[in-house]
Design a protein around this nucleic acid. Structure first.
Length: 661
RNA sequence: GGCGGUGUAGCUCAGUCGGUUAGAGCAUGCGGCUCAUAUCCGCAGUGUCCGGGGUUCGAAUCCCUGCACCGCCA
């Protein structure tokens, strides 16, 4: 039985973000793990390159769509190299071989009357490439993106998906592991139960969309992207996978896929469209579709407009590829949503990678260097408890990874890390070393600790390939860790006494947060104020400033005009998000007297970050109601070039209610 | 609106079939060690298990109900 794992094919136009990295790293861990278990692994990722957006983007740059895709695909390919992704194949939907498979299968469905031609009328949103029903429109516009839609009546081809509703429901019910996690499975079952399944429009007339796979039975149409895209999982297995798979595992091998890893946003597409397509084609279904969660960033949804898109290459560069990979899989149970923040990442790195694991390696290697001249000592006896723990992890890994519980797998491995740290403390080799009578015991303790490190390198290799290769090397293990068999190596005692150990410095350097915190506390309020002043200066002195000065000449006010405005400092006592608004924050501020202020700064600040801060408030402004809440004054903030507010704060501590003049 | 889910320590969460004193990590406090990357080890906690009602000898767990939040609805 082979092991075939996929990521979705990513839309070639997208800028790779943490979500892409997440799925791909997860798939990579599985692939690496199963290779180490000696299984025939095929791991495929790739890009989706057809459709309106690619066509438009190419036109904008004066390129043909393929040329544009050729350029954009590098974004993904480079990132996967940076993140140590070990995919066996990279499929592009513009591959001639892929297109060929798509056309063959379309033809087959047409011949078997699983595809029919119908007149379709509806409202079409061109940028989103999809039809809407009249009832779904929001004020006559696309409910998804808010842009205008056009009424279209045209012939199209439909895949008779509706015929498979019962079969699909039954398949999902009979195979509890088909859709995971369970909550997603429930969703799909609910979806299938509540309404009749419709047929799926799988074509677009070339007059509207030229960039796609031409229907084999009608030259005037291309196939709609999903039909083309989903088939990659199957087509790649036919023409990109090594031929050996077919010899040992049958004609379709490595198909069917063991796991399709996807984000929860494309669950229906996979669970319903893809499954029924395969049923119609009489191709076996994949064993599992796993929909993982989404990442928020510092507690907010990731979006281009917020400018908080996490760029994986940058994070990997700053903190290390392996630390990033580790964080992604350790922080959140696979399947649930998670939150990415640098603080959380640094915390994981420092506590688990640097303190627990890195320091363990360091203390063991240094002691072997000190007490045994950097050579693995001959143990006096076997530490049975540690042996059982270390060897037992292999089964635990298998269990957890079978259901993609990476977090639990890592948890299991960390039990060994903790055990050895405790073991060293309890046995105190530094004390044993002082007593020649205890030399045998010392050798046992150091041997066992070193042997445990060898297990850790093995088990952690799928998660952190680079660091574990290094660890493996410092343990004097010559063989290439990537090629090694877990079943052979995860046996206690395979570490040979006499092996020379190397010191290559810390495995995971600690990140000094103390300094960072102090700097942030010191500079952040100042920075905001400085920025505001700087911007004003720039405007007044620069070219832009001159224009403004001229324009402003008539608008000049006298000092009296200014003194009418009462501005004071205020200490934020309490801050909370206003319900029903993502921008408004309600603040209770002490400006000498308590007052309530509502400020539209929720995009840039979390309420809890404002509490305790001293801000600047216009205190004699007429009260106004925002979302039904009275705002008694106005908080002053500079607007940055990105449109994000930067709240003014005094340079040094002043009492609440201090006058500003 | 329909369907599904969640609510447990300061934070993130685990809690199997209903069963002893409700757990883990992080954060916090105290103590110990000195091999180690200011690391490691030990101890200490704090709980209206969302509210209300019910079943039961016994409920975080099962049932009903209310509230809050989240997801899915081509």
């Amino acid at each position: 039985m082979n092991f075939y794992v996929t990521t979705p094919i990513y839309y070639v136009n997208d800028q790779p973000h943490i979500g892409h990295a997440y799925t791909t790293v997860a798939a990579d861990v599985l692939a690496r793990y199963h290779r180490m278990r000696g299984r025939d692994v095929y791991f495929q990722t790739g890009t989706d390159e057809h459709g309106q957006k690619v066509q438009s983007a190419a036109e904008e740059r004066g390129l043909d769509p393929k040329g544009h895709a050729d350029m954009m695909v590098e974004n993904f390919k480079t990132l996967w190299t940076k993140l140590d992704i070990s995919h066996d194949a990279f499929i592009r939907t513009t591959d001639a071989d892929h297109t060929k498979v798509v056309r063959e299968l379309l033809q087959r469905l047409w011949d078997e009357k699983q595809i029919v031609k119908r007149t379709y009328s509806g409202w079409y949103c061109t940028p989103d490439e999809r039809f809407w029903m009249e009832k779904d429109l929001v004020e006559g516009c696309c409910p998804d993106c808010g842009r205008e839609v056009e009424k279209i009546e045209e012939d199209n081809y439909f895949f008779l998906m509706s015929e498979y509703q019962d079969r699909l429901t039954e398949h999902i019910q009979k195979n509890p592991g088909y859709i995971l996690p369970e909550t997603r499975r429930n969703e799909v079952l609910g979806f299938l139960k509540n309404q009749p399944l419709g047929d799926l429009c799988i074509s677009r007339p070339k007059t509207r969309l030229a960039w796609g796979v031409t229907l084999p039975f009608d030259e005037d149409f291309v196939t709609y992207v999903w039909f083309d895209a989903l088939l990659n999982y199957y087509s790649g297995a036919q023409y990109l996978a090594p031929a050996e798979f077919k010899k040992t595992n049958g004609d379709l091998a490595p198909w069917p896929a063991t796991h399709h890893l996807i984000g929860k946003d494309i669950l229906t597409t996979h669970a319903v469209y893809w499954s029924t397509m395969l049923m119609a084609l009489e191709i076996p279904l994949p064993e599992n579709i796993f929909a993982h969660g989404w990442w928020t960033v510092e507690g907010r949804k990731m979006s281009k407009s917020l400018g908080n898109v996490v760029e994986p290459a940058g994070v990997a560069e700053k903190y290390g590829v392996d630390a990033f990979r580790y964080f992604l899989l350790r922080e959140v149970p696979f399947g649930l949503d998670g939150d990415f923040s640098e603080d959380a990442l640094v915390n994981r790195i420092n506590t688990e990678l640097a303190n627990d694991l890195g320091n363990l390696q360091s203390r063991v290697l240094k002691m072997v260097a000190k007490y045994c001249k950097s050579e693995v000592p001959e143990p006096e006896e076997t530490e049975e408890e540690m042996k059982a723990l270390a060897e037992g992890i292999l089964d635990a890994l298998e269990g957890h990874l079978e259901v993609l519980q990476f977090q639990r797998a890592l948890d299991e491995i960390w039990k060994l890390v903790s055990f050895v740290n405790k073991y060293i403390d309890t046995n105190a080799p530094w004390a044993l070393a002082k007593d020649p009578a205890k030399a045998g015991r010392l050798r046992t303790v150091l041997y066992s600790s070193t042997e445990a490190l060898r297990f850790l390198a093995l088990y952690l290799h799928p998660f952190m390939p680079g660091s574990t290769v290094k660890l493996w090397r410092t343990l004097g293990q010559g063989e290439d860790l990537r090629e090694i068999s877990l079943d052979k190596e995860a046996r206690w005692g395979r570490l040979k006494p006499g092996t020379g150990l190397l010191d290559e410095g810390p495995l995971f350097p600690r990140i000094d947060t103390g300094k960072k915190e102090r700097e942030r506390a010191k500079f952040e309020p100042k920075r905001a104020t400085e920025k505001a002043i700087g911007e004003m200066r720039q405007k007044l002195s620069g070219k832009e400033g001159k224009d403004m000065e001229e324009k402003a000449a008539d608008n000049l006010i006298s000092i009296d005009g200014l003194t009418k405005v009462e501005i004071k400092t205020g200490k934020v006592l309490k801050a909370e998000a206003v319900e029903g608004s993502n921008k408004l924050i309600r603040l209770e501020v002490d400006t000498g007297e308590p007052r309530q202020i509502v400020a539209g700064i929720g995009n840039a600040y979390r309420p809890e970050d404002l509490e305790g801060k001293t801000i600047v408030v216009v205190t004699n402004l007429k009260p106004a109601k925002l979302m039904g809440i009275e705002s008694q004054g106005m908080l002053l903030a500079a607007t940055g070039p990105d449109g994000e507010p930067s709240v003014l704060m005094p340079d040094r501590e002043v009492p609440p209610g201090s006058k500003i003049k």
